[in-house]
Design a protein around this nucleic acid. Sequence first.
DNA 1: TTTATACTTGACTATTTCAGTCGGGTTTAT
DNA 2: ATAAACCCGACTGAAATAGTCAAGTATAAA
Lengths: 141, 141
Amino acid sequence: MKLTSKGRYAVMALVDLAKFNSANPVSLRDISLRQGISLDFLEQIFSKLKRNDIVQSIRGTQGGYILNKQPNEIKLANIFHAVDETVKTVQCKKESKKGCNGKASKCITHNLWDELETHINSFFENKSLEDLLTSNKENRV
Amino acid sequence: MKLTSKGRYAVMALVDLAKFNSANPVSLRDISLRQGISLDFLEQIFSKLKRNDIVQSIRGTQGGYILNKQPNEIKLANIFHAVDETVKTVQCKKESKKGCNGKASKCITHNLWDELETHINSFFENKSLEDLLTSNKENRV
DNA sequence: TTTATACTTGACTATTTCAGTCGGGTTTAT
DNA sequence: ATAAACCCGACTGAAATAGTCAAGTATAAA
């Protein structure tokens, strides 16, 4: 499986957003400056976050984004799923319909990746934005 | 972090090898045919496995490879470490010496990746080749 | 001693993915 | 009006991946 910068940036940006959890929307430009992430890239990311109902957008001047749920309701699993599309373990299933590696049956490691996927997902399912907020109160960026 | 085909093939090949855990060495050609993995690629992989003392090689006709330890002593962590060089989480630390993303301090998600790394490693530390052997007795390839 | 098998090594390459850019929009507060 | 901000799809350079290729060396068996 693979964690991309997109996923990392998404988490960073949402933590940033959550810190300003007022009614006022936060603009991507501000997040871009504070977190050092390209504005264009942020736009791509937030378009996906919005499509997955993690954030809401407010257009026009003074616009920006706000969280669509409480920080404790947003699991990291939701975030990664939103921006990375698939939390994919190693390519194994997609090579053929029946089995793996051109063989007729499942490869001997097939179940292993399923287990791993479950294992990793449980990590992300059990961590929310709020967890990150509290663990980072002291060392703000 | 990232799991490559190299890692997957290494596990597949070693399980294959372990099934023939006799004194006779198994040639890469046989593994290549049985598992559908390019011979040249296998050679690259086994060169690393050998360097990491996971397998032993026997040269010449009738040569091949044998496991260097018992299947229950070979953890998946050892295997991935051998072929993937680093079980790397998302690039964050390497961007700058001090902090992440060009900032002076650690980014807000920094600790998260450390935790994740630990979480994933514990999965691989607790699984040995033998575990895979027994769980695949029924559906052989 | 020849030969075929199999390991050894390093360079090379096509393809894919990643990370980010770019150029155009549309919406809305002031 | 106009400027700030979201919106969207196409594009691109660089890096990583997944191999391939070529030229060896070692050794068992005929």
